[in-house]
Amino acid sequence: MAAGGDHGSPDSYRSPLASRYASPEMCFVFSDRYKFRTWRQLWLWLAEAEQTLGLPITDEQIQEMKSNLENIDFKMAAEEEKRLRHDVMAHVHTFGHCCPKAAGIIHLGATSCYVGDNTDLIILRNALDLLLPKLARVISRLADFAKERASLPTLGFTHFQPAQLTTVGKRCCLWIQDLCMDLQNLKRVRDDLRFRGVKGTTGTQASFLQLFEGDDHKVEQLDKMVTEKAGFKRAFIITGQTYTRKVDIEVLSVLASLGASVHKICTDIRLLANLKEMEEPFEKQQIGSSAMPYKRNPMRSERCCSLARHLMTLVMDPLQTASVQWFERTLDDSANRRICLAEAFLTADTILNTLQNISEGLVVYPKVIERRIRQELPFMATENIIMAMVKAGGSRQDCHEKIRVLSQQAASVVKQEGGDNDLIERIQVDAYFSPIHSQLDHLLDPSSFTGRASQQVQRFLEEEVYPLLKPYESVMKVKAELCL
């Protein structure tokens, strides 16, 4: 049975990233139509530049190519590739079939990587351009969430054990800070992308030097003109047959890092959902379990974690691919890159769409948070109580021993009897502590235990987050809708 299948058929496997999760716009960027249309555009740009620099290419040939950029006979191309065992030459023939007058000058002087690699770089750039505003929107939604809850005390956790208090907004800023680093890295790697350009079979530009009869300047002009037509500021000066596969490492490393950030955020949300302090959106008709109707599973956060793990592992592909590119190139890269580049971007696209949807509907339960604080705060307040007693004339050592005994009794009630923490009640009825009984409410005010959390939130948002989001103001209103 021949390899390949009808990918629109229910009898043929289709990647869930495309069929179930990723956005239509990201799927289109990695589609065959987008790819092969870009090949034709690159052939047109090459012909236009070659004509401008004096090669015998007519206006009629150029116009014929322009008129057929979208006229792609995919069936013919597939048949040609089956016959020739070469995808680029299959599309040269297919393009030439609908451009008979231009057929002889299509791909003039070029090698397969002229269309293959340059198209990949265009796709990487455009895919990054799709991700950047999506990530900015996630940051914006979380920034709104953090600002609104900047002063809401909550129990902090280290080692997932109760620690000092923080605020809900401050905790959210930990998430935002990681995503801001990801946004900066995505922008950097996007701006650092260079075009492969017009380089020939081993990167020496020998074929173009021959076409222009040894004119170095025209060869350099050709490279520059096509690079500018493709919208790049610069091209690699040095290439082998391909652009260095280190570029793929750079791009997928940034995406993998984004995956790590999203995994951490969504894990926190899942843990908070278990504590009943916070939940992701839950639709009115949504079913959490087929057997347990009360369940409210954090399905979206779980999906993000599941896909983020996949995204983090994909960076190993370009690392290994770059390491086995012998001399000017081997074909070890080809099949692998067809999979890992598309999957990385479709996965990143999915987790950003999902995280935006989550961040637009996060639900906080202040009463649950308050109750958990009441359970733990008495123990945390013991040092403040000791200091207040010393100020009232008591002995630190005597007070410490009193607190120690009462704390152990209260802990026994919590752990052995399943009761509430009654340390404060014990202190309130103990005559030894009568000098500070009137101060206990103040000493137990949760806001006095959150330090500068709310001020940190305000400063972080104003100095770091809002300036970073400013270039994306025009796209901030787009909502994230999930079908599944």
Score class of each variant (00 low, 15 high):
residue 168 V to Q: 01
residue 50 E to K: 01
residue 259 G to S: 14
residue 20 R to E: 05
residue 332 D to R: 06
residue 470 K to N: 07
residue 348 A to P: 07
residue 129 D to Q: 05
residue 10 P to M: 11
residue 428 Q to T: 10
residue 265 I to K: 11
residue 81 E to M: 00
residue 152 L to V: 07
residue 154 T to K: 03
residue 165 L to K: 11
residue 228 E to C: 01
residue 65 M to E: 00
residue 212 F to R: 04
residue 300 R to H: 15
residue 332 D to C: 00
residue 223 D to S: 04
residue 66 K to C: 00
residue 274 N to I: 03
residue 319 L to C: 10
residue 428 Q to Y: 07
residue 397 Q to M: 00
residue 373 I to K: 03
residue 55 L to W: 11
residue 63 Q to C: 09
residue 471 P to R: 11
residue 293 P to S: 06
residue 336 N to H: 04
residue 362 L to A: 02
residue 245 R to T: 10
residue 194 R to K: 12
residue 150 A to P: 01
residue 470 K to I: 08
residue 304 C to V: 10
residue 62 I to F: 07
residue 13 Y to R: 12
residue 137 R to L: 13
residue 273 A to G: 09
residue 157 F to C: 01
residue 228 E to D: 05
residue 122 I to V: 03
residue 179 L to Y: 10
residue 456 Q to T: 05
residue 207 S to E: 07
residue 223 D to M: 06
residue 474 S to A: 11
residue 217 H to K: 14
residue 51 Q to I: 10
residue 58 T to N: 10
residue 116 G to V: 05
residue 409 Q to D: 05
residue 170 K to P: 07
residue 464 E to A: 07
residue 446 P to I: 00
residue 5 G to Q: 14
residue 152 L to K: 07
residue 412 S to Y: 15
residue 121 L to S: 10
residue 150 A to V: 05
residue 363 V to T: 05
residue 56 P to S: 03
residue 181 M to H: 15
residue 195 F to S: 09
residue 20 R to G: 07
residue 414 V to C: 15
residue 123 I to R: 10
residue 279 E to F: 04
residue 196 R to T: 05
residue 5 G to S: 12
residue 428 Q to R: 04
residue 197 G to M: 10
residue 188 R to N: 11
residue 135 L to Y: 00
residue 321 T to W: 01
residue 372 R to V: 13
residue 79 E to W: 08
residue 195 F to P: 12
residue 274 N to R: 03
residue 107 H to W: 01
residue 459 R to A: 05
residue 57 I to W: 10
residue 439 Q to F: 05
residue 110 A to V: 07
residue 38 T to I: 05
residue 266 C to G: 14
residue 88 V to A: 13
residue 164 Q to M: 08
residue 117 D to C: 02
residue 206 A to Y: 13
residue 257 S to V: 04
residue 267 T to Y: 03
residue 37 R to N: 13
residue 114 Y to R: 02
residue 223 D to N: 00
residue 12 S to W: 12
residue 285 Q to T: 11
residue 256 A to C: 04
residue 117 D to V: 07
residue 2 A to R: 14
residue 386 I to N: 04
residue 64 E to G: 08
residue 228 E to S: 11
residue 133 P to C: 11
residue 197 G to K: 02
residue 56 P to I: 11
residue 402 K to A: 15
residue 85 R to A: 03
residue 182 D to S: 08
residue 21 Y to K: 14
residue 291 A to P: 07
residue 133 P to S: 04
residue 426 R to S: 15
residue 463 E to I: 01
residue 416 Q to P: 11
residue 288 G to F: 04
residue 238 I to Q: 10
residue 206 A to W: 14
residue 350 T to C: 10
residue 222 L to G: 06
residue 64 E to Q: 08
residue 315 V to L: 03
residue 161 Q to R: 06
residue 227 T to C: 05
residue 482 L to P: 05
residue 145 F to A: 13
residue 45 W to Y: 14
residue 323 S to K: 01
residue 476 M to A: 08
residue 57 I to M: 02
residue 6 D to E: 12
residue 292 M to V: 13
residue 110 A to D: 02
residue 253 S to L: 14
residue 197 G to Q: 14
residue 45 W to T: 08
residue 161 Q to F: 00
residue 70 E to C: 15
residue 454 S to M: 14
residue 160 F to D: 06
residue 158 T to Y: 02
residue 204 T to G: 02
residue 106 I to G: 05
residue 441 D to Y: 03
residue 325 Q to T: 02
residue 306 S to R: 10
residue 386 I to F: 13
residue 157 F to S: 04
residue 361 G to A: 14
residue 284 K to G: 12
residue 77 A to W: 14
residue 91 H to W: 01
residue 203 G to Y: 14
residue 358 I to W: 02
residue 197 G to R: 05
residue 185 N to Q: 10
residue 281 P to T: 07
residue 476 M to L: 01
residue 402 K to T: 15
residue 483 C to L: 08
residue 41 Q to D: 15
residue 408 Q to N: 14
residue 468 L to Y: 00
residue 318 P to E: 12
residue 381 A to C: 03
residue 254 V to F: 11
residue 416 Q to S: 15
residue 217 H to R: 02
residue 423 L to Q: 15
residue 317 D to I: 02
residue 264 K to T: 12
residue 411 A to T: 12
residue 111 T to W: 03
residue 21 Y to M: 10
residue 135 L to R: 10
residue 78 A to R: 09
residue 74 F to C: 04
residue 306 S to H: 01
residue 327 F to P: 02
residue 471 P to L: 08
residue 463 E to C: 04
residue 98 C to S: 04
residue 245 R to A: 09
residue 45 W to K: 05
residue 151 S to D: 02
residue 148 E to F: 09
residue 414 V to L: 07
residue 113 C to F: 11
residue 277 E to Q: 04
residue 177 Q to G: 01
residue 179 L to W: 07
residue 389 M to N: 00
residue 34 Y to P: 15
residue 379 F to P: 13
residue 175 W to L: 03
residue 124 L to K: 10
residue 227 T to R: 01
residue 371 R to W: 11
residue 119 T to G: 00
residue 383 E to W: 09
residue 464 E to M: 08
residue 218 K to E: 01
residue 434 S to P: 05
residue 244 T to E: 07
residue 64 E to S: 13
residue 90 A to Q: 08
residue 306 S to W: 08
residue 82 K to N: 09
residue 118 N to L: 01
residue 81 E to P: 08
residue 353 N to H: 08
residue 454 S to K: 01
residue 69 L to R: 02
residue 474 S to R: 13
residue 14 R to P: 11
residue 227 T to M: 07
residue 96 G to N: 15
residue 105 I to R: 12
residue 22 A to C: 06
residue 352 L to H: 01
residue 98 C to L: 08
residue 49 A to I: 10
residue 413 V to T: 05
residue 275 L to S: 10
residue 351 I to T: 06
residue 27 C to Q: 11
residue 62 I to S: 07
residue 306 S to P: 10
residue 288 G to M: 01
residue 425 E to T: 13
residue 270 R to D: 15
residue 214 G to C: 00
residue 124 L to T: 15
residue 89 M to R: 04
residue 423 L to F: 15
residue 252 L to E: 08
residue 66 K to F: 07
residue 40 R to T: 11
residue 131 L to Q: 05
residue 54 G to V: 03
residue 482 L to R: 11
residue 188 R to E: 12
residue 201 T to H: 14
residue 31 S to N: 00
residue 182 D to H: 12
residue 87 D to W: 14
residue 78 A to L: 10
residue 318 P to A: 07
residue 6 D to K: 14
residue 135 L to K: 08
residue 385 I to L: 13
residue 15 S to E: 07
residue 8 G to R: 13
residue 457 V to I: 10
residue 101 K to W: 06
residue 389 M to V: 03
residue 167 T to V: 06
residue 473 E to K: 12
residue 193 L to S: 09
residue 217 H to Y: 15
residue 340 C to R: 07
residue 22 A to Q: 09
residue 117 D to E: 04
residue 415 K to T: 12
residue 301 S to H: 03
residue 89 M to W: 02
residue 368 V to W: 08
residue 80 E to N: 03
residue 326 W to F: 12
residue 262 V to L: 01
residue 324 V to T: 12
residue 289 S to F: 00
residue 103 A to V: 03
residue 441 D to K: 06
residue 279 E to T: 13
residue 366 P to Y: 11
residue 366 P to E: 15
residue 335 A to W: 07
residue 432 Y to I: 13
